[in-house]
């Protein structure tokens, strides 16, 4: 059975805040990890409640996001949705790592520039 993953988006990155995300990626993954279907949904406005409702109606199994309030984290966990929060970096890398089974809470996926080497 396909597993649905939702990633809260902010541009090309995982949204730093679950409650402020106005875009989400919903991907259906086959048991072997391949992406069967993916879609990006633009939300009319940022709302943690609406997002939680969507997660439940879309039957999402895993949520990947940045910061999330404990209230929503507990609610989703209680509804048997796995939440991988404090993930930072491009959403494609996050999905890739998840498919490989190596994505964890608090993962930092940016290619970091060393201090003073930002080219400015």
């Amino acid at each position: 059975m396909a597993k649905k993953v939702l990633i809260a988006l902010h541009g090309n990155e995982v949204a730093p805040r679950f409650d402020l995300a106005t875009e989400v990626l919903i991907a259906s993954l086959a048991p072997d990890g391949t992406v069967q279907e993916d879609k990006i949904l633009v939300l009319p406005r940022a709302s943690a409640e609406k997002l939680c409702h969507m997660i439940l109606t879309e039957d999402v199994g895993v949520v990947i996001c940045g910061g999330i309030e404990d209230e929503y984290f507990q609610y989703l966990t209680w509804k048997r949705v796995k939440v991988l929060d404090s993930v930072m970096g491009p959403f494609e890398t996050a999905l890739e790592r998840f498919r490989e089974g190596s994505l964890q809470e608090g993962a930092i996926l940016f290619d970091r520039a060393r201090k003073g080497q930002d080219g400015d």
């Binding site: 730093p16 940045g66 930092i108 940016f110 970091r112 060393r114």
Partner: peptide, 18 residues
């Protein structure tokens, strides 16, 4: 852990994002 990371991902402040 967070050196070189964009500030909005670390601070996660609504002002920085909006």
């Amino acid at each position: 852990d967070v050196e070189g990371i964009p500030c909005q991902c670390v601070l996660r402040c609504n002002i920085c994002i909006e």
